[in-house]
């Protein structure tokens, strides 16, 4: 099995990893490193349950990216957004009861945060458009849209970001 050494910063911690070249970022996160807050919903880029933030802004379906191609990138999962307390999106999801079974929630929270970082004042239409790739079978989306609208009111002040990586954890995978 071919492997590659990469450096990934995950939720603020830089890690040196060796990953099989065909391993998806989702599998690296979940299976290799135990970041199970990123979910498997389809494995084919159709549901958004596996969404992560790359380099603080853009979102990505981690089931569609090979970890080996992510060398040097910084990855944020829903657990990583709760830096010093919940971020505004997470709090708003609670306030608006936008959480039912919770399986889509980490991906939704991450995707919504990415949206607000790029566009802090989205219209309802823009929010709905941006969330199209994230399926929720429970809520019917209304409460989620309301949560993003609530969060937008206090963005970006309540959105904590990890500063640059503080330490390099060696041999996590060694």
């Amino acid at each position: 099995m071919k492997e590659r050494a990469i450096q990934l910063t995950i939720n603020g911690t830089a890690m040196n990893l060796t990953v099989p070249v065909h391993q998806t970022l989702l599998d690296t996160l979940r299976e290799q490193l135990g970041f199970t807050d990123t979910k498997y919903g389809c494995g084919t880029g159709e549901c958004g349950a596996c969404t992560v933030i790359v380099d603080d802004k853009d979102s990505l379906c981690s089931c569609m990216a090979l970890a080996a191609t992510m060398n040097g990138r910084s990855i944020t999962t829903s657990a990583g957004l709760a830096f010093d307390g919940l971020n505004a999106v997470q709090q708003a999801f609670i306030d608006q009861t936008a959480v039912q079974c919770g399986y889509c929630t980490p991906g939704m929270v991450v995707k919504s945060t990415s949206l607000l970082r790029k566009n802090p004042n989205p219209t309802e239409e823009e929010i709905r458009k941006e969330l199209e790739g994230n399926i929720c079978r429970c809520t019917g989306y209304d409460s989620i849209v309301k949560a993003v609208q609530q969060a937008a009111k206090s963005f970006p002040e309540t959105d904590a970001k990890w500063d640059n990586a503080v330490e390099v954890k060696a041999g996590v995978n060694a």
Binding site: T36, D37, Y40, S78, A82, I94, V99, G102, P106
Partner: peptide, 21 residues
Amino acid sequence: KNVPKVDAYEKVTGQPIYAAD
């Protein structure tokens, strides 16, 4: 009353353990 769902905090931070986790 719209009390916060008992599992909402865990769920927005991705903590609950589904079988696959």
